[in-house]
Write a protein that binds this DNA or RNA. Structure first.
Length: 558
RNA sequence: GCGCCCUUAGCUCAAUGGAUAGAGCAUCAGACUUCGAAUCUGAGGGUUGGGGGUUCGAGUCCCUCAGGGCGCACCA
């Protein structure tokens, strides 16, 4: 995938071979990883490496001397003029300055690879199951679920970009007490609408959406269930409630540009005997014992703080038992890595699930649990909380109505999923420079606008070779930002932190807007105009690719 | 009480164990006869919550204290 033009890899390869030569010369066996850093300060090079300081200890030599030796070896290896300058600095850093032609080569790679620039075969087609959202079908998605959806979907896009084979799955908890409560809640609302005085049941879902659901349902079927006994009516109401709510969830997700390959039903897990199977398997493996009439799993033997009930004293299996069966099934389906994205309030649940996989003889490290921390909403500088219990919460749909899908997705990804997120609704719906999503999209629209004008002026199409004419420091600065894209992607995948893309894009956008205000693309000499148009095209491609990875559109005009 | 996450500029947040801790917002001062001003340029703003430790080097790793959030079911 064009890695011959990955600037960091090129640089690393050169430095590594030079270091290897010196190590052989010094009679040092073994591998020393040469890590390339991005110095914060420009004066410290485009890249730098601390390898001399790492080796100094073993060599019992002054790190600066070691660095000087390595530096001359690098210079000898660089027959192609990749480096503009090399230097030893500070306690023994080797600072590497790349020549302009190196940066032009990366930019040319963008124009050749187009939307594949930055992608890789790192995943080698390994199969990944990405389970996210998985909100219970008892109510509409709220802002917290939106974060899980945004992070999960972006992660999926990223992993695919990095060469993994990703399956997206939504686990539907469509059985259990909550379904009874839900069915009873709908039935109560329905009866109220039919004029039958009915009290809301205990643990009822009190949200406004239940009333709307009851109205819709009654409009379709009339009052005919009003006369039925609860036992007769309940299965219908249970099914109708969860089914319709799930449809609403799916509709919200589609609008949010999030799609799933599988909707995995917990009910089918039970019906198919998979829950019983996994309980049996754990029993056969000697992982279970009986106490007080219930069947316990020895999860404390696998790192959990205490043992967990799988089968209750009354014979019913627990939610945990179903989850064990579900994850056992994930392993059986042949995935190399399984991701679970959970709300942070479930963090205490992770040890027991890992324990159960270990108890089944599976490798728990293949299960990666990403915890999505809480979202709080900010409007006009004031924080307001939501509460699921009371039924008063802000739904994802309301947020989408207010700020739109692009801004919502972007704002969800402005923070590491590992920390709390403050979602500023006022800022998200601001259509101005204050809003970073428009700031970035504006880069794309602006470049498209330049090309519309270029076409109007009858200018020739962009040629990769035009880049050879660029050498202005500001032009090179833009190229350097572009060149960071593949590194950023690799790091983002490695850390499973899609929010890094938003930071990168803001940085790139800032560099471009600055350049735009300082220089002209059109109306320069034909050669310079051609070169700058090529550069603009490369920026446009990278911005478009970056936005697509977080599921945000790249508009041609705004 | 135990466990997980967090604490960096007035606010929201960056910083793969590296060199002088950076952006945006807000504040102040400037830039459109030109390819889109949804833009740009500049200024001020910090004991990285406190204290120890590891390291050639700590915002980053370890310990500890303080503060905030979230969990500790035969619920899902």
């Amino acid at each position: 995938m064009g890695h011959e033009l990955d600037v960091r890899m090129m640089t690393g390869t050169l430095v590594r071979s030079a270091v290897r030569t010196k190590l052989d010369e010094w009679g040092i066996e073994g591998d020393y990883p040469v890590l390339l850093e991005f110095p914060r300060q420009e004066g410290h090079g485009d890249y730098s490496t601390n390898i001399a300081m790492q080796l100094a200890r073993q060599l019992k030599r002054n790190p600066r001397e070691v660095a000087a030796d390595l530096l001359s070896a690098i210079r000898d290896h660089d027959t192609g003029g990749w480096f503009r300058d090399l230097g030893v600095a500070g306690p023994g850093f080797i600072n590497l300055f790349l020549s302009d032609s190196a940066w032009r080569a990366v930019t040319a790679a963008v124009l050749v690879e187009r939307e594949r620039f930055g992608s890789s075969e790192e995943g080698r087609g390994r199969k990944i199951l990405l389970e996210f959202v998985s909100a219970n079908p008892t109510g509409p998605l709220h802002v917290g679920h939106g974060r899980g959806a945004a992070v999960g979907d972006a992660l999926g896009r990223l992993l695919e970009f990095a060469g993994y084979d990703v399956t997206r799955e939504y686990y539907v908890n469509d059985v259990g007490n909550q379904m009874d409560n839900l069915g009873r809640s709908l039935l109560a609302r329905y009866l109220q609408l039919c004029g039958t005085p009915t009290e809301l049941p205990e643990n009822c879902y009190k949200g406004e959406y239940m009333i709307e659901l009851a109205e819709t349902f009654r409009a379709e079927v009339g009052d005919r269930y009003a006369a039925m006994s609860e036992d007769e009516a309940l299965p219908v109401f249970r099914r109708e409630a969860s089914g319709r709510i799930l449809e609403g969830i799916a509709a919200d997700l589609e609008r949010f540009r999030v799609s799933f390959d599988n909707w995995f039903s917990e009910g089918i897990l039970h019906a198919g005997g998979l829950v019983d199977d996994s309980v049996r398997e754990l029993r056969d493996r000697g992982e279970l014992y009986e106490s007080e009439g219930a069947l316990f799993f020895r999860s404390s033997a696998h790192g959990d703080e205490k043992d967990r009930v799988l089968v209750r004293a009354d014979g019913r299996t627990t939610y945990f038992a179903a989850d064990v069966a579900y994850h056992r099934d994930k392993y059986r389906r042949g995935f190399d890595v399984m991701f679970d994205l959970w709300g942070a309030d479930h963090h205490g649940y992770a040890p027991r699930l890992r324990a159960s996989m270990e108890g089944l003889g599976e490798d728990p490290s293949r299960l990666e649990i990403l915890l999505i921390q809480f979202v709080s909403l900010l409007r006009d500088g004031e924080k307001f909380q939501m509460s699921t219990r009371s039924g008063v919460f802000t739904t994802l749909r309301e947020v989408l109505d207010e700020v739109g899908t692009d801004a919502a997705r972007f704002f969800y990804l402005r923070r590491s999923h590992n920390t709390d997120l403050e979602f500023d609704l006022t800022l998200a719906k601001t259509h101005s420079s204050d809003n970073p999503v428009y700031y970035i999209q504006y880069v794309h629209a602006r470049i498209c606008s330049i090309f519309r004008e270029a076409v109007a002026r009858g200018l020739p199409k962009v040629e990769v070779t035009s880049l050879d004419l660029l050498s202005h420091p500001d032009e090179i600065a833009v190229m350097k930002k572009i060149a960071r894209f593949p590194d950023m992607i690799a790091e983002t995948v490695r850390q499973r932190e899609p929010h890094r893309i938003t930071f990168y894009l803001q940085d790139l956008a800032q560099t471009f807007h600055g350049f735009y205000n300082q220089h002209r693309f059109l109306g320069e000499t034909p050669e310079r105009t051609a070169g700058r148009l090529a550069l603009a095209d490369a920026v446009r491609i990278v911005v478009s690719t970056g936005l697509s990875l977080i599921g945000v559109t790249a508009p041609e005009q705004m």
